Amino acid sequence: MPFAHDTAVELRAAVALVNSAEPPETLATVADLDAFFREHGYTGRHDRTAEELAQVRALRPRLRELLLADRDTAAGLVNELLAGVPVRPRLVRHSGEDWHVHATADDAPLSTRIVVETAMAMVDVVREDEHSRLAVCADPDCQGMVLDLSRNRSRRYCSTACTNRNAQAALRARRAG
């Protein structure tokens, strides 16, 4: 894996959050946010309110911009995002996870923690010059994001649905040809 475990976890969560805006919407209710929180291993404050849901949903365009930015633009965006929040990096261990970095207080709003954790993950992407691991889905009818953590950088589609749809189309084209 090209990144530390916590960086990969945060990048997966950020891509999932960004992709939740793609049809069909998958972050529409507080229950959806609860599931997102659990699935991506977030800890700390979680208000479970419509306001918190709105704050998290509002992050999606900004995080998409950050994740798809070129290296120099991403560096500037990371600095801008981190300048706007209280950042206090520290090493923590919890929930069966080994030592990893938390960079803001556990009682900070969930949207703040998502911004900080995504920005910190992008620090590693920028430093390692690994922007090619983040892309838009190769399906021409999809705008979902792809995070490719494979060794051979072969992931092209954001989901199994897009992969299957394109594989079927390629098969039909080969049979027709």
Rank of each mutant, 00 (worst) to 15 (best):
P2T: 11
H5D: 15
D6A: 09
D6S: 12
T7W: 03
A8S: 11
E10G: 10
L11D: 04
R12V: 04
R12D: 10
R12Y: 06
A14F: 11
V15Q: 02
A16M: 04
A16V: 00
V18I: 03
V18G: 03
S20P: 03
S20F: 00
E22A: 12
P23T: 14
P24Y: 00
P24N: 04
L27G: 02
L27D: 02
L27F: 03
V30R: 04
V30T: 08
L33I: 01
A35G: 13
E39D: 15
R45T: 11
H46K: 06
H46D: 07
D47W: 06
R48Q: 07
T49Y: 02
A50P: 08
L53A: 01
V56T: 01
A58T: 01
R60F: 00
P61G: 02
R62K: 11
L63H: 00
R64L: 01
E65P: 08
L66Q: 03
A69E: 06
A69N: 08
D70K: 00
T73Y: 03
A74S: 05
A75H: 12
A75G: 11
N79F: 01
N79W: 01
E80P: 06
L81T: 13
L81F: 15
L82M: 05
V85C: 13
V85W: 11
P86F: 12
V87Y: 04
R88D: 14
L91S: 13
V92Y: 00
V92C: 02
H94W: 02
E97C: 08
E97F: 13
H100P: 05
A103D: 10
A105K: 10
D107S: 14
L110V: 07
S111D: 13
S111W: 07
S111I: 01
S111M: 01
I114D: 00
E117G: 14
E117V: 09
M120P: 05
V123W: 09
V126Y: 05
E128D: 15
H131M: 13
L134V: 08
L134Q: 10
L134R: 14
A135H: 12
V136R: 14
C137M: 07
D139Q: 08
D141N: 13
D141Y: 10
G144D: 05
L147Q: 07
R151W: 07
N152P: 10
R153H: 13
Y157I: 02
C158A: 06
C158H: 03
C158R: 04
T160A: 14
A161Q: 12
A161K: 12
C162S: 06
T163M: 14
R165C: 00
A167D: 02
A170F: 03
L171I: 13
A173R: 15
A173K: 13
A173F: 10
R174M: 02
R175C: 01
R175S: 07
